[in-house]
């Protein structure tokens, strides 16, 4: 990928991203450890994406009509959904499908736009690496 970053501020990035810009480690669900991606299967990519919060209702303090969430920029990108070991896809929200853990259904952990059939993003901050 052309947007491999080697920022000085992201000290542990080289632990996660190989020289070829791929994921060095397995990508796992933060909650149940379900395997989402095998090592070397995804490319590091930077893109600003808004992902709704992964917290439960009780801990959310939403004002009506707004969705609580984060804008995240560091992602694992794959071009074919069957590259995933285990993953779930939500129903469409506009042109977007969100990615979730296939086993415990926590999410969204990632993002897919129906207008780009070859791009599936998983946010680094929303998964574990091992």
């Amino acid at each position: 990928m052309d947007n491999i970053q080697q920022n000085k501020d992201s000290t542990n990035r080289s632990d996660l991203v190989s020289e070829e810009g791929k994921n060095r480690k397995s990508v796992l669900c933060q909650r149940c450890g379900s395997k989402v991606l095998c090592p070397g299967m995804a490319a590091f990519a930077e893109k600003e994406l808004f992902l709704p919060s992964m917290r439960k209702k009780s801990s959310l303090s939403t004002t009506e009509g707004t969705v609580d969430g984060d804008t995240l920029t560091s992602h694992w990108l794959v071009d074919d959904m069957y590259t995933f070991e285990n993953v779930g896809f939500t129903n469409d929200v506009g042109r977007i499908k969100y990615l979730i853990c296939a086993d415990c259904e926590i999410g969204p952990i990632g993002w897919h736009c129906l207008d780009d059939k070859k791009s599936f993003y998983v946010a680094l901050e929303r998964v574990n690496h091992a």
Binding site: C32, V67, V87, G88, F89, T90, N91, I100, C101, G107
Partner: peptide
């Protein structure tokens, strides 16, 4: 895999799941 363990955040349970791989 863990039936009792489904997390179902507010957001996910509202929009629903299409399919799994």
């Amino acid at each position: 895999r863990f039936s009792e363990d489904a997390f179902n955040t507010t957001f996910i349970s509202t929009i629903g799941i299409d399919f799994k791989i």
